[in-house]
Every structure is written in C-alpha cells, then in structure tokens.
Design a protein around this nucleic acid. Sequence first.
RNA 1: GGCCCGUUGGUCAAGCGGCUAAGACGCAGGCCUCUCACGCCUGAAACGGGAGUUCGAUUCUCCCACGGGUCACCA
Length: 545
Amino acid sequence: MTENECRKLAEELFPDIDATPEYYAEFYPERALPEGAQVTRIAPSPTGFIHLGNLFSALADERIARQSKGVFYLRIEDTDLKRKVEGAVEAVITTLGYFGITFDEGAEMDGDKTYGPFYQRQREKVYKAFVKRMVAEGLAYPCFCTAEDLDDIREKQREQKLTPGYYGEWARCRELSYKEIRERIDAGVPYVIRMRSAGDGTQKFTFRDSIKGEISVTANNRDEVILKSDGIPTYHFAHVVDDHLMHTTLVLRGEEWLSSLPIHLELFRMLGFKPPKYGHHAQLMKLDGGTKRKLSKRKDPELALEYYRKLGYHPLAVKTYLMTLLNSNFEEWMLKNPDAPLEDFKFSIGKMGQSGALFDIAKLDDVSKTVISKLTGEEFYAFLLDWANNYDPDFAKLLADKTYALGVLDLCMGAGKKRRKDFICASQAKEVVSCYFDGTFAPERDFPLPPETCKRILTAFLASYDHSDDGQAWFAKVKEIAASMGFATDMRAYKENPDAFPGSVSDVAEVLRVAVTGHRNTPDLWSIMQLLGEERAVGRIKDCV
RNA sequence: GGCCCGUUGGUCAAGCGGCUAAGACGCAGGCCUCUCACGCCUGAAACGGGAGUUCGAUUCUCCCACGGGUCACCA
C-alpha cells in the first residue's frame, strides 16, 4: 500500500474517530508531581477473584508510590468480556481496603475526572485514535485470518519446527493491497488490526528490569493483534496506551509478563512513547508433594484473600508477612523498630526476591502473634467483635459483655510491656478464649493425677479458699496443700530428685487449673479465678468433687 | 520443543573474589517458672552437578540437571 492508501484506509476503517493522538496528549497532560515521584498502579481484570498475589503486588506498588509522594491508582482491565464478573470491582476495592490498601485515583473514584476513565471498556475511542494513526502510518493493518487459518499456520510451523506465530512471511494479511482489503471489508469479512512488527526475530538486546536487573531479550517480530474484531484492544495495546496517557512511571507485574515485554517495547517505540520502568516479580509458590509450584486458584484455598479474612487473620498481620517476603531486609528493620508503623520502612524494589517464595503459614502465624501482641485489648476486642459479627454470630453474643470480654483479652494478652502471644487469628482466639465463657466452656476434664488424689486436693483447696486473697496468698495456700500431701514445694529440689516426692506444687496447681478451665495450659490461674468471679470459679471446682 | 527467568539449611533469606557462610520462622535441648505463653541461652541444619578464569570461588564464564514462566482475537 502507498502512503496515501494507508491514510485513506485509516479514515475508512475509523470514520467516527476524530480525536487525534495529539488531542489526547494534551488532554492527559504530564502530572505535576515532585521530583522522583513514582506513579504506579494495579490493573486487575474483573474476574471477582482477588488473591494473595494481587495483594503482594499491590502492596509493593502502593509503598513505592506513597513513599515517593507519587500516585497509586486502580485501573480495570475489562477488555475481555468473557471474564467479567458482576460486582468484581467492588470486591477488589473492599478486599484490598480491608488490608489497608487504598488508591489515590482510579475506578469508582473522583479520579475518573482526571486521567480516567479507568475502565478500559470506556476508553475504546482513545485506543482507536492511536490505532487509526498506526494504520495511517502503515504501522498496523487489518487481518482477515480466521481461527482456522491461524491453526493452519501454527500446524505448518510445527511441522517445520519453526517458532509458532504470526510473523514474517507467515503473516498472510501483511502485504494485502488496498484493493484486496477493500473487497473483504465490503464483503463483510470480520477482521482484527495487527501491528506491523519491524523485527526479524534475530535482534537481541539487554533490558534493565527494576527487579531482575539485566535480562536479555529478543526483539519482537510478531504482528500481534492490537485491536480485536469487536473493536476492543488487547491487553498489550491497552497497557501501552493507558500507561502512557496515565503517566505511569513504574509497572510492577508478575514475571509471567516478561515474555511479552518485547511486544510492549515495540509498541511504545511505534507510538513514539517513552516506556515506563518495569519490574517483574516472581510468583508466590507453594510446596506440593515435594516440589514447588505456583499457587493455584482451584487447588489452594489459601490463595484467596477471603480465606484469611474468614479465619480472622488480622489484616496487618497478612500485610506484615507479605512485607517480609517483599523485602528481605524488612524483618530485620522490624526487629529494630518494633513500634514503628510499617509505612516507615524504606521499601526498595531492588531488594525484591528473584525467585518465587513459598508461602509459609507457620511464618504467617508467628508474624500474626507478634502483630496482635502489639494491639491494645480494646483494639483486639474491636477486631474480634467485627469478625464474629461477620462469621460467628454465637461468638459475637458472648463478646457482648465488653467489660468481661476485655478482661479475658487482657489476661491472654498480658498487661503492660510483658505481652503474651496467645492469639494468632480470630478463629483460633475463639478456641483459646472459650473456657472463660459459660456458653463455650467444655467441662470434659482430663486430670493429671488419680481421681482420689484430685478430690483431696480440690476439697482442701475449697476449704481454705478465700476469694479476697491476693495472688501471693493464694499461691501460699496451694503450696500448703502440696506440702500437706508430701508434694514438693520447691521446684528446684523436686527437679534434682523427682523420685523423692509423689508430685510437686506444679501438679497441685495443674489439678486446680484443669478443674477451673478444663485446660492444662493457661495464663495465671489466680487471675483467671478473679476474672471468673467467686461463684463461677468455685462452682467449677465443686463440680469436680 | 524454542525463548526467557531462577537454583545458599525444612521455609524466607543476607552475601556481591578471601567470612568459623548472617538473621528470621520452624525443629531439638536448656534457663526462667505453679502450667502455658513471653523472654533469654545453646544446638542440629545450606552454597544443585561438572568444567574453566584466578594465588583463591557461594560470588565471574560456559555446559548440564532441576524448578518456574511463556509461545491466544486471556489478562
């Protein structure tokens, strides 16, 4: 086709598109941001499934943008209507919001008035303006190949052991004349628009990835589809146009995109845009039957963020755990700055991991314990109550007596600076705390000593019990009972010669503990009895004699 | 299969030519202690394999193996 024919074709293909690339360049001006500010985004497709990997990525994007006083926005990649799920966008926003990720602009926000719209479906005209220009300049052309044609091409390429794809002489529609194109269009043959790659498949160059460092890439040579037959762009094209017009400075995405980077780079070049910086991060993995594999939507419930919410993991715990995976020096920093908010940590993309990290629930649990131990009783109470209201109404009822519930939590969390770490997540906290509520107290007791001995201990205890005793007086009485039965009261002496005694105070205390709580391991027993109140505490012991 | 990325203890990982190869989780033992939890101490536990380069390789190069990714009008 001649230059004139190209221009003519562009006009005929897109008669309704009046706005030019120049118009949009002016419409979406350079952002006025301080020096060094980064503009990042997450761009999920609205499938309704938001997972740990999304949060992982979002957290990195958010940190980079906020840290640099830049912009973090949400764009919805809804170019594939097959994948669209109702309510998915709200789910993305609320779920990420639960984990404390918020946007500066983007879908469903006022930002729509600035660099938006942020739904790609609503940007059809924008993309077409650029496609039109590419056709006019001979950088793109209509392709009439059917799915069968493409299969046929692939088949032949496979036979000849060539790289599959629409490129070079395999690109059948590439050199169609203006007349041939006209005829097919007039005949109503559906078509897509493909980019006309300048590559021949041999040029190699190195690219500097913000995470992976120097990587070697082969220049693109494929005439990728940029506009589908329904007039909607493919991801490749939408990404390039949007990230340019929205002035994204850093694209952080999964390493599965690394292989299509050459396409994007060529598109940026064709359009005369300066590409953003790219950082391709590794995927989250899990151990399955001895080998690492990518976390899968279908097989791994722990991939879904909803999973953690249901179990009642604190959002900050999940976030903190993810930070330890995101930046290896984060944990060290956290140890040194135990009271600093994680926003104070200087996040650096250069320190992101090179290979896929295994998701480690044991580590999450440990981080969770620490995070919760830093919460005040009030804060944890509010969190627990909120969780119970959503997932466990019966438990919520037990929590209704706030003063009492707070007493329980304070007991399990420890007072002052000596914090216990009993809680991992809300569902587990419920188990831990169940023995303090009559509604959930399970009175099956497994005593460590023979029934007769237990009875003697409990009877003696009841006889001397005074609810107004302080902790010391209380324990002195326990010791007395132990001594009266010949049990050791000095633990050191007992340990040196355990056979010399039938037991120790520790056994006596344990009998009491089991009688009162049903458990062998609990926080300080005296405190528990004070919390339960005389009637209940004594009542539980009486049940055992 | 082609191309790309990766490979340090069970897990997350520091390391960036010379170290007794950090640290965290987990595990084991101990201290503290009425149990538990917390805290503290100690311990077991690693550079995938093979060639080079070098006085010297975990670190640089190449080959192999293994793991991952990708080759759509999906993102």
